[in-house]
């Protein structure tokens, strides 16, 4: 009963202690109180639901459409290539951590689509809360698989629903980089992602992503415009300079290469703790950041062409 509704719960879940207690209590409920407390009526035979939007705001129907629309882009435009896909667990929760780039980041959909296609496991992409406040886009993002990046949401997905969650610890500072700073990882926030993985008792799977930087590079940023609209950054992209207004939504066909690194496990810390050592969290966060940075340099050393890989 971990999820209060028909959320996908894998069958290998350990029995929830809460449930056991609840059942117990109900069994010992004195008979004479029955008159006051209504005993639950049998569940309604017909499902009153009209749509398939779940608690996270996703709709499988919409996701199917989005997958169909995006698949040609994934295969023919970005020609995505994976390496180390076997490092992604086939069951159980895991926190996927990747570098983030492109004025409108093109990495999130590629990672989510690739894993869903290859492993058949849904990926929950955590996004900035700001997404929620944008009309239409916020709703669409939720329908196709995005979730607001609140620690409680991540914990619930990882620990209770044992899902794959994708997070970009750089936040808006990653995609807000200009062209000359490409592939140089920003600070990984305050290491919150490590803390969540520890609390949820799941491994962190680092992912290095090459190509997103070149799909929509930022030439310069407009500080005042960003301030006026309350945005984290207002980019002028090479795409807009080259293609005019059409460039605002057109990616360059950079070759995408994705390398999944060895999972990082925190076997020595207990899950569900109130707090974790700040020192430990920051060290782990920094180590993961360095691993991704190293992998990126390695991949760039091997890359012969931005467009052909």
């Amino acid at each position: 009963m971990a999820a209060p509704e028909e959320a996908p719960v894998p069958e290998d879940r350990p029995p929830d202690t809460d449930t056991a207690e609840a059942v117990d209590l109900r069994l010992h409920q004195p008979e004479d109180h029955g008159a006051l407390v209504h005993v639950a009526a049998p569940p309604q035979p017909s499902d009153p639901r009209l749509s398939d939007v779940d608690e996270w705001g996703r709709s499988e129907h919409m996701r199917e459409i989005a997958r169909k629309a995006y698949d040609p882009v994934y295969r023919h435009w970005f020609r995505v290539e994976w390496e180390g896909m076997e490092n992604i667990p086939r069951s159980g929760g895991a926190l996927l951590v990747a570098n983030h780039a492109g004025a409108i980041p093109s990495d999130a959909p590629a990672i989510m689509h690739g894993i869903e296609k290859e492993l058949g496991r849904p990926v929950y992409g955590l996004a900035d809360n700001l997404f929620k406040s944008i009309p239409l886009i916020g709703t669409m993002w939720a329908r196709v698989g995005g979730v607001a990046g609140h620690p409680d949401n991540a914990y619930r997905l990882l620990r209770e629903q044992r899902q794959l969650v994708l997070v970009f610890p750089e936040g808006a500072k990653g995609p807000g980089k200009t062209w000359n700073e490409r592939y140089r990882l920003r600070r990984f926030g305050r290491g919150g992602f490590v803390e969540i993985a520890m609390r949820a008792g799941v491994p962190v799977v680092p992912i290095a992503f090459v190509g997103a930087e070149e799909s929509m590079p930022i030439v310069f940023r407009l500080q005042t415009l960003a301030k006026v609209f309350g945005l984290p950054y207002a980019p002028v992209t090479a795409n807009v300079l080259a293609l005019g207004p059409a460039g605002a939504l057109t990616y360059f066909p950079a070759k995408f290469k994705i390398r999944v690194l060895e999972p990082v496990e925190f076997k020595d810390v207990l899950p569900n703790q109130e707090r974790y050592s700040r020192n430990r969290v920051m060290d782990e966060s920094e180590a993961i950041r360095e691993k991704i940075q190293e992998a990126l340099y390695d991949m760039l050393r091997e890359r012969q062409s931005i467009w052909r890989g």
């Binding site: 009963m1 209590l25 009153p48």
Partner: peptide, 20 residues
């Protein structure tokens, strides 16, 4: 709503059936 459920309370309705 799990805390109250864990205490032993059983709901007659879900959100959807309540609307129905």
């Amino acid at each position: 709503n799990r805390k109250l459920k864990a205490a032993g309370f059983t709901y007659k309705h879900t959100s959807a059936s309540a609307v129905e």
